[in-house]
Design a binder for these strands. Structure first.
Length: 496
RNA sequence: GGUCCUUUGGCCGAGUGGCUAGGCAAAGCUCUGCAAAAGCUUCUACAGCGGUUCGAAUCCGCUAGGGACCUCCA
């Protein structure tokens, strides 16, 4: 089976074929570490983590590059260009790199909580100033950039004359060139559509580097082009990021890299949609963000409780990555319950005994349904990562799994081979590909021993019809967060 | 203002021409000392209007609402 992905550049689903057989180069725009990550940031990194995992499952050796933007990206409108990282640092009275370190650590911590695999390479913008300067030099040499007052701008009009500038973002170049908007600090550009490759730094700028054009800092888009080229080559397979980066960021990346490397840089552009809150995009500019730390702690006016990283991961996977996802406390509560139920079914499945003697199941209809649902796991993922459909199938299978445990379905209803396949597919898709995991460590031997003792005591009490004692054990365990469940066969199990 | 997208049952959310997605909530039942959990059952929607078609949530047009980008943004 072959993977199809939606390519933003062609606006259609395409068969995925890697440039180098067996290998995939993937670049994803990483965080700007001038502040704390919020729920909106979780989406791309979880989405592309799943893609990374899925490509690996498909047998590709993937080099996954995700940058850390620890410089650059500037405020421009209505005021002098300012280095965002440097500005915040002054406010917080921290060294710029101290601030960057703090938020980088926080980012790593949060996405470790989300069980996101680490990228193969996580380059920083400040660590690649030299590469960026080299790239700018080449673009100047090619005649597509010009220097004015220590700054360097990309000549969009010239580029657009021979290239399809605006194709990725569906922009019409003439509209861009005839912007009616008045922007300060734009007068030195030849054209308003031009973008900065290098910006001259005012004396008070803390973050600055020397360059052939004087002291300054790199422009908005050049870091991704430089680092992607360095680690993935002039042409690589996948470039991912949020939809809001299509213009101008990715459009400009294409232009820079195309001029510098004489080839279009990316084969498949993939963009995730936004997370909205009350229908509005969650973003810094809207002042409506919910930080990840607030989500994890529940410390936010819109939240009724804390939500675990796996709940959020599951919530994100329940919708398709290219569709908008509206946040609400209720939706997260629903996801929390759904995930818990699914995960517990999975834990039941793992310890379900397999009778190798069952060659043919006694319930062919059930068996064919199970096989069909399992087969669709990969089929759905191949269709542009349709994670919600895979999850829907898992929920079709969950009651069947629970019915096996409760004896509502005969143990020999399906062949041993099918049961083994069921176990394997659940493990691969739930754990390896979706990156979900148990929230709680229940493999603490000491806790297991204590629980067994309490279960034994409760059973003895129940046998003696001493329900006061048995209820006390159950209720008090419940109060501290352990749920005792009486099984159909008289046994007991527990979950946190 | 320009470009583009979107509108699904109480809520979330799949779905691109014909066959009940799924989850959460709610109700009933089974099981149970009670409860929880689990299982079973019920709840059949596609913004409005018009068109194409044997047949449309799905294609086209108009109307209304919402949103994104155009400026840092995942």
């Amino acid at each position: 089976m072959s993977l199809k992905v939606y390519n933003s550049y062609s606006r259609q689903k395409e068969d995925f074929k890697s440039i180098t057989p067996g290998h995939v180069g993937m670049y994803v725009c990483g965080p700007t570490v001038s502040g704390e990550s919020h729920l909106g940031h979780a989406r791309p990194y979880i989405t592309f983590d799943v893609l990374f995992r899925y490509l690996t499952y498909k047998g590709y050796k993937v080099r996954y590059v995700r940058n850390i933007t620890d410089a650059g990206h500037f405020e421009e409108e209505g005021r002098e260009a300012e280095d965002k990282v440097g500005k915040k640092a002054l406010l917080e009275k921290l060294e710029p790199m101290e601030l960057v370190q703090k938020y980088t650590n926080l980012f790593h911590w949060a996405f470790n909580q989300f069980n996101c695999l680490e990228p193969s390479i996580e380059p920083t913008a400040t660590g690649h100033i030299v590469e960026q300067i080299d790239m700018i030099k080449k673009i100047i040499a090619e005649g597509y950039a010009y220097e004015i007052n220590g700054s360097v701008y990309f000549d969009v009009k010239k580029y657009a004359a021979g290239h399809d500038y605006g194709k990725l973002s569906g922009r019409i170049i003439d509209d861009l060139l005839s912007t009616t908007r008045e922007l300060d600090g734009q007068e030195e550009k030849r054209d308003t559509a031009d973008f900065a490759l290098w910006k001259s730094a005012a004396p008070e700028h803390i973050m600055r580097w020397s360059s052939p054009w004087g002291d300054g800092f790199p422009g908005w888009h050049i870091e991704c082009s430089a680092m992607a080229t360095k680690y993935l080559g002039a042409e690589f397979d996948i470039h991912g990021g949020g939809m809001d980066l299509q213009f101008p960021h990715h459009e400009s990346e294409i232009a820079q890299s195309t001029i510098c490397n004489h080839t279009a840089p990316v084969k498949y552009w993939m963009h995730n949609n936004m997370i909205t809150i009350n229908g509005k995009k969650m973003g810094k500019s809207y002042n409506n963000v919910i930080k990840l730390t607030e989500l994890f702690s529940g410390d936010h006016p819109l939240l009724s409780q804390a939500f675990s990283p796996m709940t959020i991961r599951f919530f994100i996977l329940q919708s398709h990555y290219r569709h908008p996802l509206d946040f609400s406390n209720e939706a997260l509560v629903a996801s929390e319950k759904a995930f818990k139920r699914l995960w517990e079914a999975y834990e039941v499945l793992r310890i379900l005994p397999v009778n190798e003697a069952v060659i043919d199941g006694t319930n062919p209809l059930l068996e064919s349904k199970v096989l069909n649902w399992l087969g669709e796991f990969e089929e759905f993922m191949d269709d542009d990562l349709s994670t919600p459909k895979v999850i829907a199938n898992m929920f079709e299978l969950a009651p069947i799994i629970n019915s096996f445990k409760d004896g509502l379905v005969a143990a020999d209803a399906i062949a041993a081979s099918t049961l083994l396949l069921l176990k394997e597919k659940f493990r691969i898709f739930l754990e390896d590909i979706f990156g979900l995991r148990s929230e709680h460590s229940t493999n603490n031997e000491m806790l297991k021993g204590v629980m067994q003792l309490l279960i034994d005591m409760r059973r003895e009490a129940r046998n003696k019809k001493d329900f006061a004692t048995s209820d006390k054990i159950r209720n008090q365990l419940n109060d501290i967060g352990i749920l005792l469940k009486d099984e159909k066969d008289g046994g007991m199990s527990w979950t946190i």
